Amino acid sequence: MKKIAFCTLFCALFSFSSCGLFEVDNYDEPKETLWGEVVDVATGKRVLTDQGKDGTYIRLTELSWGENVQHNPDFNCMSDGTFQNTKIFKGLYHIDVVGAFIPLLRENENGTPLADDTQTTEIKGTTKVRFEVQPFLNIEWVGEPTISNGKVTAKLRITRGVSEEEFRSKIEPMGGYESNFLNVTDVRLFVSYSSSVGYGTSMDNDEFDPWSGELKYSGSEFNPSLGEVITIESKGSIPSGRTVFVRAAARINYATPKGSGTKRYNYNEAKELMVP
C-alpha cells in the first residue's frame, strides 16, 4: 500500500514538472530607462513638486500586450520636476503624468476624449520625454527667507499659472464643475532637515514636523492677495546650530486626477538656512 502511494506521488510530481512548474524563469530583467521632465508651457521652467505620493506621478501602460492591459505601478516625480525609472521592459508605452496642473488627458463624464496631451513612445535603451503643462499656481520667493530666534520668516508672491477663463474652459467640459475649484485653500512654509522638504516630510504631523507654518483661507478669501506680497512664518522654535531647508507651497480646491480627492501643491525652490 505504501509503495502504491509513493508511486502515485512520484508520478504526480513528474507530471507537474513536465508542465513547466519547476522551470527556471529565464526572462531578462527589465533594464530600459525612461527619463523625463515636466515643464511649465508658459515659461519653460520645470514644475517643482513634492517627492511623494501627493506630488507629481507618472503612469505607464505597456501597449505591447493589447488594449486591456493594466498599467504599471505608478512612480513619483522628483522634487525638481524630473523623473527616472531604470527598470522598464523594452516595449511601446502610453505615458501619463498627473500633478498640480491641467490634466493632460481630459474626458467627459461618458469617457469621450476631449483632449489628450499624453505621450505614446517606444522605450528602448535610455528614452527621454518632456511634458509641457499648465500649473495651477506659481509661487516665488520675494527676497530671501530670514531666521531669527528659531523662527523663519518668508515673503512670497503667488500668481495663477492658468487664467480663470482657460481653467474653466478645460475643466468644465469634464463634468461636475464647481465655481470654488480655483479658490486657494492654503499656503504652506515647509521646514525640514531634509532637502526634499515638502508635504511628504510633513504629513500634517506636529510631532514629526513641529516647525512648518500654514496660512488657511476660506472661499475666495485669498483672491485679493494674488500677485501681492504675503508674509508667512514657521512655528515653534528651531534649535540653534542646525541646518534646515525651507520651501513654500500653495494649492487650489481642485483634485487631480478627477475624483481622487487629492489636492496637490505647487512649490517654489528649496532654500538652505543655518539657524544661528
Score class of each variant (00 low, 15 high):
E272A: 14
K271R: 15
A42W: 04
L9G: 02
K124Y: 08
V187Y: 06
E37R: 14
M78I: 06
S64W: 00
S79I: 02
N223T: 15
F22S: 14
E228R: 13
V275G: 01
T201E: 13
T201H: 12
T153I: 11
T153K: 14
S194Y: 13
L137R: 12
I147H: 10
G81N: 04
T43D: 00
V275K: 03
S260I: 05
P145N: 11
A250M: 07
W211R: 11
I171P: 04
T201Y: 09
S163P: 02
N68G: 09
Q84W: 00
F14D: 04
I171L: 13
R59S: 15
N266K: 08
S202Y: 15
G81S: 06
G99E: 03
D50I: 03
G125K: 13
K87W: 00
P135S: 08
Y193C: 02
I123F: 01
V229Q: 10
L189M: 09
I102N: 10
A5H: 12
E165L: 10
Q84K: 15
D204L: 14
A250N: 00
P276E: 04
W35V: 14
L63N: 12
G81Q: 02
P135E: 07
E178R: 14
S194A: 15
V162A: 06
T86K: 14
I102C: 05
F22K: 03
P30Y: 04
D204E: 13
E207P: 04
L9Y: 01
L34F: 02
L137D: 02
Y254S: 01
P276C: 09
G91R: 08
E107W: 02
D117A: 13
S260M: 10
L92P: 00
Q134M: 15
F136C: 10
